[in-house]
Structure formats: C-alpha cells, structure tokens
Nucleic acid binder design. Structure first.
Length: 596
RNA sequence: GGUCUCGUAGUUCAACGGAUAGAAUAGAAGUUUCCUAAACUUUUGAUUCGGGUUCGAUUCCCGACGAGACUACCA
C-alpha cells in the first residue's frame, strides 16, 4: 500500500510540477493515531521541485490524488508538511483478499539459486553447561536464520564446538584425580552438568593450592608458575596434542557426556543446526594457513618461535597467531574453521553470532582472512550482541552467579504453571495438556523477553522478578493467538465459514481498516528485519498486532454479529491475524498454543 | 591511556532525520448476564549535559559526564 501511494505521488508530482522524481524520495508512513487518515506523505522533500509552501504543496498533491486516483485515495487532509491520506475502503478489502489468498504471506520462497548465508551461533565450550548468555546467543542465531530464510535466502546454520584446549583438560584432570570413576549415569546428572562440576572442582583445588603457595611467601606470579595442578593440566594438553590414546579416550568419553547434555538443552530450547564443526578438526587447518602466511611474508615469526600478525597499518596492534610452543590460539582456529567452511559450502554471506566482547577479535579475523587471500574475509559479519548481566553485576562462573540455562527454563515453566493454576485455567485441561501449555508459555515468554530487546544493548536479567507474563510479553501474544483460535473453532462449530475472498464493496469500520493496514505491513517488516538483522523488530511488530487485535476483539462480538458480511469480514480478519502472528512468532522460534 | 558499544518515564523496552517522543510495568480510578479478565478503558510520569549540521535531531557530528566490553602465549 505504501508503495502504491508513493507511485501515485510520483505521478502527481510529474503532472503538477513537471518534475521526474524517484519513488525513494517519497516518504510514506502510517499516520499517527491523533491525526485523521491511514498513510502520511511527508512533503518536505518535495518542496525543492514544487517551489511552494509545504501546506500548499500538500493540498495540491491531495487534490490531484483524490481527483485522478479516486480508486486509491478517498480523501486527505494537510497538517503542516504532512499529507494525510484516507485510503479507499475497497482498497483495504482487496489487501485483505490478497493476504487471505497467500499461504505464507510475506515470506519469499527460497530458490535453488538464492544466495547462501551461513550463520554460526551457540559455539559452546565443552567444559561447562550452557547459561543465560548462551540462551541469548542461541535464540538470536536461530531467529536470524529464520528471518534470512523468510527473505528467500538459503541458510546453513552451524555450530563450532570448542571441544579442545586447556579448559577441557582441567575437567579431565579433576575427573581423573577425584572422580572415582563416576559417570553421569551413576550420579544421575546431566552430562554437561556433571563435567562442569569437575571443572569447578579443579578451580576449587587450584585456588587452595595457590593460597598455600602464597602462604609460603611466593608472589602471585611465582605461585602460578609453581602450581603442580596447572603443570599437570598442561602436560595433559601436550599429551592430547601428541595423540596419546588414553588421554584421547578420556577426552572423547567426557565430551560425549557433554554433547548428550547439550543435545537435551538445545532440544528443550527448540533450536538445532544443519552442520556442526569441531575445533579439534579445524585447528590444524588454521595452523597450516598461518604457516602459509608466514611463508608468504604476511606474518612474522619471532626468535622464540611464536608467530605474529602486525596490524598497525590497520590501526590495530600486534596479534599472536601461534604460541612459542607451536600450539594454536583462538584466532588460529577461527581461520581454519573459516577455510573449511568455505571449502564445504559456496557461502555468499557469513554471519557470526558472537557476543560484543569479541568485537575486536572479529575485526582482526576479517583483516587476517582478507590478507590470506580469502575473498569472504572483508564481507564477514559479526552479529554482535550485548552481555546479559545480573542485578549484582556480571555473571561469573567461578562465583557461581551464573544463571544456568536448564534451571532457567525449569523456572520459567514452573512460573507459567503456577500462574495458570492461580487463574483457574487448568481445570479445563488434562494434566498433559496443562503441562504442555506451561512449557510453551514459559519458554515463549523467555524467548520473547530476550529477543524483543535490541541486540546491541546489554540486558540486566533479574531472576528473582523472573519474567513477566503480562504486557509486552510472549505470553500476551500467545494468549491472543489462543483466543483467536478459539473464536475460529467456535465459528466452525456454528457453521460459519471463512471465505476465500470478500466482495470489494464490503463495508469497513476504522478499527478493521487499522487491523488490515497493520497486517499488510508484514512483508515490509520481514524484509526490513532481514536487512537490519533484527529479531527485535519482528517481536515488537507481533506485539503491536496482538495488542491491536485485543482491542478489536474487545469491541466486537464476532460470533454474535448477525450481519453476514460483517461477520465474515471479522472472521477473516481474525483468521489472518492468527496466520500472521503465527508467521511472526515462527521467525522468533516461539511456539503457539491452540488453547491456554 | 587507546578502540568499540550503550545513556529515553520509578523500572523494562520502542521510535528509516519527521508531526504533540510511543508501549509495558509499577502507582491511581473503572469495566464480567456477552466468543478465554493472562483482557479492556481512563490517568500520573522521560530523551544525562553543552555545542554544531537543517525546514526539522532521541537519531547525524564534536566535547563533557556516566555504564559496559576489549586492549592475554584464555576461549
């Protein structure tokens, strides 16, 4: 609709002022509530060609549109430099017919030639369970993938698992020393939790060791160097890299436990991947690339054997790529992973969903890949998002102030169950139904809470206050959806049908026009969300749609409406609102209950 | 110190450079013979400060102040 108006205005400008302008000059936006009209044209940008005052220009354009395009424009008014347009009712009916006729309104079908976007997200370490920060990451990544797909892109969702390194060795060593052969099965624990506990155990003993050493009068640095635990860990890493079979077997077994745990958490969270990469497979590739860089004179090997990239020409500093002992660092691995990925897929766009603490890392990665001659280096996108903090400050795994992903999901579902129970809703449902609804609502609220916030911002998450189930929340949207489904069920029972299309002379009330207008903007919204990589945009749109429908619902007795054409209109509006809420929420990875 | 991100009602979030800065919560007052009251209606309340760019700035630029991140032979 906005586009139609823009085209019509271009035509009017040509007829009135004889000037050729592009539609991109025309700003068409929804009219603010306090003014009369549906859409508003901002005339300020047109003053240059009209050579007249804003009000006069607006009136001339309005007159032209009402006279020459009356099938589109039914009326107008001008306030200052704003031309408010009343769109003809028959237009809105046609728009609604258009929405009704499309299975997935607003989604662009994915063709085999479409650009291929790879999205990396999650990227866990295998030494501890997933926490709230990972939840934000996973939700953003999953949602972005859905949004890109809705924009007609081919999408490969990928996960790079940091399955090797000193941190894993800490868990392994602790298990060897103090595990007494325990397994997740024997302890009745989730595998990731089980291994994470050993990681914490290592740290506890390490702290103790450090305190003892410092008590002997050693400085902090000396104490670190004298640590036997650390020495054993490093030795373990060395053995791992050397391919020691016993160590490799232990490593494999403990990682399997962790993967089983992750799998469960991912499944509950409702996210998955198309392709998983393991750092243990990619880090050697990274080393090769770095060595190539050295031989091509791109990087410098120092006297101690370490390899560095000098990025001072780019305004950055020196960056380590290989340690003196030849082992790789994070950057080395990311170079290797990138190479393997581009060998595996014809990637047009690479998106890394990683926290903003790594902004610098990706800036450097982009430059390094570019230096190494990879065409994709410059175009890689770091989808950076803010930290999730607690009211007391930053989450610290060592201080035990981390909000565990599984615990949080449990808590959300529990809260949903309690609220549902208190409202007396559960009487209508079987135990299984009630439990399923609690699950959908609890998780939906959590997801919505995270996704509606602009990714750049840090989130302060208050576990005590938990998450609201009222207002701008996932459950509000779910409730609205369930209610619409209920209306449609009842309509069917009573023999009322939703037609394929409405006659164009169907009368419309302003509430109905407003709802159609909002529905009609969905394709633009999806496109914009794709261009701006913004799940938050989708979330806030779906909320405003749900809110609009709630008011509509409150004002009209849909099923008791006796006028046939009015009732079918309202049913059709309900049907399509549900359809688009469903589409929108699917972009966020949020499931909807049929009843609640 | 340097680089980057963020500063909006008491609180949590919105606002392609557009009109009188929107919602939600919390506070105050209402609405159930009626399709689901997890709803709806009314009401109180905010752009950190100072410059600049222009028809117009929460948005863009400069400076100050405040919060966070990075600046590791950690990942």
């Amino acid at each position: 609709m906005e586009k139609k108006i823009a085209v019509a205005v271009v035509e009017a400008v040509k007829a009135l002022y004889g000037a050729e302008i592009g539609t991109e000059v025309i700003q068409v936006q929804p009219t603010k509530r306090e003014f009369e009209g549906h859409l508003t044209v901002v005339v300020f940008p047109l003053l240059e060609v009209s050579k007249r005052k804003p009000e006069e220009t607006g009136r001339s354009l309005g007159d032209y549109l009402v006279t020459h395009r009356k099938e589109l424009v039914a009326g107008f008014n001008v306030v200052k430099g704003f031309l408010n347009i009343q769109v003809a009712a028959s237009c809105w009916v046609e728009v609604l017919n258009g929405i009704q006729s499309e299975e997935r309104f607003g989604f662009i079908p994915v063709s085999a030639e479409a650009p291929l976007v790879m999205i990396e997200y999650s990227s866990p370490n295998t030494n501890k369970p997933l926490h709230l920060g990972h939840i934000r990451n996973n939700l953003l990544g999953y949602s972005l993938a859905e949004i890109m797909r809705a924009n007609g892109k081919r999408v490969v969702r990928t996960n790079i698992v940091n399955d090797r390194g000193i941190h894993i060795c800490k868990s392994m060593l602790a298990w060897q020393k103090w595990g007494n052969g325990a397994t997740p099965m024997s302890m009745g624990l989730k595998g990731d939790r089980f291994v994470g506990d050993f990681y914490v155990l290592f740290d506890t003993y390490y702290e103790e060791e450090q305190l003892n050493l410092k008590a002997e009068g050693l400085t902090e640095k000396e104490a670190e160097q004298r640590s036997t635990l650390m020495a054993e860990t490093r030795e373990m890493l060395r053995l791992w890299e050397a391919g020691d079979t016993a160590i490799r077997r232990l490593w494999k077994e403990m990682n399997e436990w962790v993967y089983a745990g992750f799998e469960e958490t991912y499944r509950r969270l409702g996210i998955d991947f198309d392709r998983i990469y393991y750092e243990s497979d990619t880090y050697t590739e990274g080393k090769k690339e770095v060595e190539r860089g050295v031989s091509e004179g791109l990087f410098e090997r120092r006297a101690d054997g370490s390899v560095w990239a000098d990025l001072s020409a780019e305004g950055l500093d020196q960056k380590l790529l290989l340690r003196a002992d030849g082992t790789s660092v994070y950057m080395t691995q990311d170079i290797g992973t990138a190479k393997l990925r581009f060998d595996d897929y014809p990637i047009d766009k690479m998106i890394y969903v990683v926290g903003n603490e790594q902004d610098y890392h990706f800036q450097v990665l982009s430059i390094l890949l570019d230096k190494l001659g990879f065409a994709f280096g410059k175009g890689l996108m770091h989808f950076s998002y803010g930290m999730v903090d607690l009211p007391e400050g930053k989450m610290k795994s060592r201080k035990g102030t981390v909000v565990d992903a599984d615990d949080l999901m449990d808590e959300m579902i529990r809260t949903a169950r309690v609220i549902s129970h208190d409202l007396g809703k559960q009487e209508d449902f079987s135990t299984e139904e009630a439990e399923e609804i609690a699950r959908l609502v609890g998780l939906g609220s959590l997801k919505y809470f995270i996704l509606k916030i602009d990714p750049h911002r840090n989130i302060t998450f208050n576990p005590k206050k938990s998450i609201d189930f009222n207002g701008n929340t996932g459950s509000f949207i779910q409730y609205t959806y369930a209610r619409i489904r209920s209306v449609l069920r009842k309509a069917k029972e009573q023999g009322f049908t939703v037609p394929d299309r409405l006659p164009s002379d169907t009368p419309l009330a302003s509430k109905e026009e407003a709802l159609i207008q909002l529905l009609a903007t969905f394709p633009l919204l999806v496109q914009e969300a794709g261009e701006r990589y913004s799940p938050a945009l989708v979330a806030n749109y779906v909320y405003s749609l749900a809110k609009e429908y709630n008011q509509f619902y409150h004002d009209y007795a849909i099923l008791r409406e006796t006028n046939l054409s009015v009732r079918t209109l309202r049913l059709m509006l309900s049907y399509n609102t549900a359809k688009i809420i469903h589409s929108g929420m699917s972009l966020l990875g949020i499931a909807l209950p049929e009843r609640m």
